[in-house]
């Protein structure tokens, strides 16, 4: 069974057609990258797949659940990191992760907080208010909340944003390790190099439809960028 499957997925906001009959299939264990320009429908796709929005039409299945009918079942099984999301300003990372532990009903949350704070190198700021953390530290805390419940499938919008080069390498290794354990990763990004470095398959979305899917490792040089530009500009 595919981890993610959509058929004719359509979303309309008033007069705006955000998704137009999107057909998508992602296998378990895949590291799938959804590429597209601003406003192409990437965020809406993730929001529908995770039960945050209801589609106007079409069918969708995530880990065997219908996110329209059973959004909580989907969200229990997945981790989500939207773009530009920070931990709440007036909580510390420890408190925020305690909150996440409560809503996810994780029993051994304290030990998991310690484990992920060490792994993502923010143990020194665990008791500092989030508003006083650097952008990179906040991003690490947000990554921790994604993985802390060991989900089978993770959705991340721009995973490497605000991270320094060393931390980017760490996160890339973390994501690869996560997928090699049989889990599935669904990335949304603007950055070709992120898709090339991380993904086993990329899909290019433009105007709410998937226009191309391919293994990025089969591209030479700037071919992915050129393909992206021609597919997006050509529409």
């Amino acid at each position: 069974m595919a981890a993610i499957e959509t058929t004719g997925l359509t979303k309309r906001y008033g007069d705006l057609l955000a998704l137009s009959g999107l057909e998508l299939s992602v296998e378990r264990g895949e590291l799938y990258g959804l590429l597209g320009p601003n406003g192409s429908g990437k965020t809406t796709t993730i929001e529908i797949l995770t039960g945050q929005r209801t589609p106007t039409a079409g069918e969708v299945s995530v880990l065997g659940f219908d996110p329209v009918e059973r959004p909580l079942s989907v969200r229990e099984a997945v981790g989500i990191l939207p773009e530009r999301e920070d931990p709440p300003s007036f909580l510390t990372p420890r408190e925020y992760l305690r909150f996440v532990g409560d809503v996810r009903e994780i029993d051994d949350i304290q030990s998991r907080i310690a484990e992920w704070a060490d792994r993502l190198e923010f143990a020194g700021v665990l008791d500092t208010l989030a508003s006083d953390l650097s952008e990179g530290e906040r991003q690490r805390v947000m990554l921790a909340q994604v993985f802390i419940d060991e989900p089978e499938l993770v959705f991340i919008d721009e995973p490497l944003v605000n991270l320094d080069p060393l931390m980017q390498a760490e996160v890339k290794a973390l994501l690869s390790e996560y997928c090699s354990a049989g889990n599935t990763l669904f990335l949304s990004t603007h950055f070709m190099e992120v898709a090339e470095a991380l993904c086993t398959r990329v899909g290019i979305i433009a105007d709410g439809s998937l226009v191309l899917e391919r293994d990025p490792r089969t591209f030479d040089g700037d071919e992915l960028l050129e393909t992206f530009a021609s597919e997006v500009d050509g529409r």
């Binding site: 510390t92 420890r94 408190e95 305690r98 909150f99 409560d102 500092t128 208010l129 006083d132």
Partner: peptide, 28 residues
């Protein structure tokens, strides 16, 4: 140098009033 640190047990101290959905707004 202006990073504000708080006691690590504030969350626990308020937990008698409810779970994280209660403690979070109280702390905020």
């Amino acid at each position: 140098g202006g990073a504000r640190r708080v006691g690590r047990d504030r969350f626990d101290q308020l937990s008698s009033l409810g779970d994280g959905t209660t403690v979070r707004p109280l702390l905020e």
